[in-house]
Computed example of a mutant assay.
Amino acid sequence: MLGSKAATDMCRIAAYTGPEIPLENIIVRPAHSLLEQSQHATEAKLAVNGDGFGISWYGADTAPGLYRDVLPAWADENLTNLCRMVHSRLFIAHIRASTVGETSRANCHPFKFGKWSFCHNGQIPHFKAIRRRMQAALPDHLFEVMQGTTDSEMIFYTLLANGLDADPVAAMHATLQQIGPDGTDGPIKLTCVFSDGQTLFAFRHASSGTAPSLYASGVLDNGGRALASEPLCGTAARWTAIPTDTICAMTVAGMNTLDAAVAA
C-alpha cells in the first residue's frame, strides 16, 4: 500500500517514452500526476515538494528542450499551458524538495548536456566533504558548464566523465566509487532517471536502508511506458518497483535490466 514503508524520498520524478503525447498526459492529468504529487506525495519524506520544477523533452533535435523554474509547480500557470501545448515522444519531469543547494533555476532538475538529460531524487549527506575532490576530477569541458551547487548536478557530470555514452553500468559504478563510503551524516541515497533521447534509464541505490522509490508502468493505453516516483494512478499494484543497484533501460519495446549489478 502506498505510504506504508518508511518515507525516505524527497523530490518526485515522472518520465515517459512512446508515441508522441502532450506532456500533460503524464504531468498534469492522471489522478496521482506529478503535479498532484507536488502537494500530496504519499511515499515521500515531505508531502509538499515546492522548491522548483523542470521538464526536459525530446523532439526532432538530438538535444532536449528544457524548461525549469523556482516556483512551486502548482503556482506556475505556464507549466500547465506548456504541458498542454508541447507534445513529445520522450520526456522527464521533476519537482524538487531541496536538500543541497539553494532554490535557484540552476539547481532545478533536469540537467542537460549534449543529448543527455538527467534528474535525481536523494542525497549525498557528506557532499560538502567530497565536492572539491569531485570537481577536480571533472574534465575541463564539463567543469566549465556546471552552473549550480547541487550533489545532483555533480552526479550527472561525473557520470558523463566516467563514460556514460559508452557504458551506463560502468559509469554508474565508477561514480559510486568516487562518491565513496558514507560519512557521519547518514547513508547515500540515489534514485536517478536519465536519457540519451532514445532510452530512459532508471537507477536506485541506498548505501543502507531504503532507496528512494521509483516505479515502472506496464504498457499504457497508447502503447507507451512511464516511470514515476509514485504510481500515477495511485495504485502500486499496477506498477513495478525498479530494483536497486541495477540500471534498467526502458524503451517502447519494453524494459531490460543491463548486464551487471552496479554496486556489486
Score class of each variant (00 low, 15 high):
3 G>Y: 02
3 G>F: 06
4 S>M: 10
7 A>W: 03
9 D>C: 10
19 P>T: 12
19 P>K: 11
21 I>E: 14
21 I>W: 01
24 E>A: 12
26 I>Y: 09
29 R>K: 15
29 R>T: 15
36 E>R: 12
36 E>Y: 13
40 H>R: 14
41 A>E: 12
45 K>G: 14
46 L>R: 12
47 A>M: 08
48 V>D: 05
55 I>C: 07
56 S>I: 04
56 S>T: 06
60 A>Q: 13
62 T>I: 01
62 T>C: 02
63 A>K: 11
64 P>L: 05
64 P>H: 06
66 L>F: 11
67 Y>A: 09
67 Y>M: 07
69 D>Y: 10
71 L>T: 13
73 A>V: 07
73 A>C: 06
76 D>R: 00
78 N>G: 11
82 L>T: 04
83 C>M: 09
85 M>C: 10
86 V>T: 13
88 S>F: 05
89 R>M: 01
90 L>F: 01
91 F>Y: 12
92 I>H: 03
93 A>V: 13
102 E>D: 11
102 E>H: 10
104 S>C: 08
105 R>A: 14
107 N>L: 03
108 C>N: 13
110 P>G: 14
114 G>Q: 10
115 K>T: 13
116 W>F: 09
118 F>I: 00
119 C>T: 12
120 H>A: 02
121 N>M: 01
123 Q>D: 07
129 A>R: 08
129 A>G: 00
130 I>K: 11
131 R>L: 01
132 R>I: 02
135 Q>Y: 11
139 P>D: 00
152 S>W: 00
153 E>K: 07
154 M>I: 10
154 M>S: 12
155 I>N: 01
155 I>T: 12
156 F>K: 02
160 L>K: 05
162 N>S: 09
166 A>S: 09
167 D>N: 15
169 V>P: 13
171 A>T: 15
171 A>F: 15
172 M>S: 11
174 A>R: 14
174 A>K: 10
177 Q>S: 03
190 L>D: 00
190 L>E: 03
191 T>M: 14
195 S>C: 05
196 D>S: 04
196 D>E: 02
197 G>R: 09
198 Q>C: 07
206 A>K: 09
206 A>N: 06
207 S>Q: 08
211 A>G: 12
212 P>K: 07
212 P>L: 11
213 S>A: 15
221 D>H: 08
222 N>E: 09
223 G>A: 06
224 G>T: 07
224 G>L: 14
227 L>T: 03
229 S>I: 04
231 P>F: 00
232 L>I: 05
241 A>I: 14
242 I>M: 10
242 I>K: 04
244 T>W: 03
244 T>N: 15
245 D>Y: 02
245 D>M: 06
256 N>C: 04
256 N>T: 15
257 T>W: 04
257 T>C: 03
257 T>V: 12
258 L>E: 04
258 L>Y: 00
260 A>I: 11
261 A>K: 11
264 A>N: 06
264 A>S: 08
